[in-house]
Computed example of a mutant assay.
Amino acid sequence: ISESLFNNQSSGAYLAQVSVGTPPQQISLQIDTGSTDVWMLSVSTDLCQMTGGGFDETASLSSNVVAQGAFVASFGGGESTNGDYITDDFIIGGATIKGLQMGLANTSSMAYGLIGLGYDVNEGSIINGKTSLVYPSIIDEMVSQGLINTRAYSLYLDNLAATTGSIIFGGLDSEKFHGNLVQLPIISTTLANGTTAFTQLQVAMTSVGVDSQSFTPATYQATVVLDSGTTLALLPNDLVAGVVAAVNGVDDTQPENSGFIFVDCNVLSNSSFTVDFGFGGANGIVIHIPASEIVATATTYLGDKTLPVATSSFGEVCLLTLHFTNSTTYLIGDAILRSAYAVYDLQNNLISLAPTNFNSTTSNIVNFTTSETSIPTVTS
């Protein structure tokens, strides 16, 4: 199942246009590897603007309420949403999933809904203790209804300037990356009761550097979530500080200030400049991120905030889309994922990465089989 994604550059979201209900209603939903629920805004949601549109369950002959008021979800940026769990027919990439369980938000601080593609354990019903409402995810339903062979998908975001990307459920496109896919084990999480489980699509980040020069020790390792629902990269303070120092940036992230990291836009004229992220250690892969993917013109995002005095020597002021976080959860968002073609295999708990082939206009889709115990070894 292949679906084109719209790069909504104003919000940083990659949106799939889907159809829900009988007769079908078109809605745009964000692809999110950091959550699991599929959910939509209701047409009655109290919002000034709905980026992707809302769903009118009263106009669908196939819509059924499963649990009224049981859908509750919150997200890392402080956003939240709540409403009902419903079932209805869901069309994506020309394939119809019959009776998919979804959240229908009556209240939300977000302008569009999500297609959550993570592990079932992250469903809102489980997180909020409603274990009786555990249900098959969209990936589970695709497999059980015979639409794909295994619980895996691949994601191609293309570069920042591109208007579209793509997602393939049950396969990959060998024309969308360079070289070989490198397999990385997904890292399990230790739960409060001492047991372990796969809860997030997270891997080991083992190096960070600039211009192919790593400034992390050889033994370095941090667990990072590959989260397509996040625009920025939220990383440990010392790593971001290393990048800021390398580009002579200005840290203005204190709460009382602008909240941004500023750099001189002249870094964009250096075509060889990259920020480099290594995954999986010596036998893993290093993804080189060009400046054009992680540096943006400040006026695009600054609004009415004031530039710090330290930027007065800059020819033109830009922003760095890497950010500090004091959380123990580190996120690799779209700013980094655009440069990495990613295959997520929830069946075998693996993620494969390869450098993105930007602006690819050709396609060669490889379908996964039912019996595969790992992501196919495919060379572009």
Rank of each mutant, 00 (worst) to 15 (best):
L5G: 02
Q17R: 02
V38K: 02
V38P: 03
M40K: 04
S42M: 07
V43M: 06
S44N: 15
C48M: 13
S62A: 10
A73Y: 08
G76E: 07
S80E: 15
G83S: 13
T87Y: 08
D88Q: 06
D88M: 01
D89A: 03
G94A: 14
A95H: 11
Q101V: 13
Q101N: 11
M102S: 08
S108N: 09
M110F: 00
M110C: 00
N122G: 02
N122E: 10
K130A: 05
Y135F: 13
L157Q: 09
S166I: 13
G170F: 12
S174Q: 14
N180W: 10
L181C: 08
V182F: 07
V182C: 05
Q183C: 08
L184F: 08
T195R: 10
F198V: 09
F198E: 08
M205A: 09
T206W: 01
S207D: 12
V208H: 12
V210C: 09
S212G: 06
F215D: 15
P217V: 02
T219C: 00
T219A: 03
Y220G: 01
V224C: 06
L226N: 09
T230W: 00
L239V: 04
V240P: 00
V247Y: 06
G249R: 02
D252M: 10
V263N: 09
N266E: 14
L268R: 02
T274A: 03
F277T: 14
G281N: 03
I285D: 07
I285C: 08
P290T: 05
I294N: 10
V295G: 05
T300W: 09
G303Q: 11
G303W: 07
V309Y: 06
G315A: 02
V317S: 14
T321W: 06
L322M: 02
T325F: 03
G333V: 09
A335S: 14
A335P: 07
A340T: 05
F358V: 07
N359H: 12
V366K: 11
N367Y: 14
N367C: 11
T370L: 04
T370H: 10
E372S: 13
P376G: 03
P376C: 05
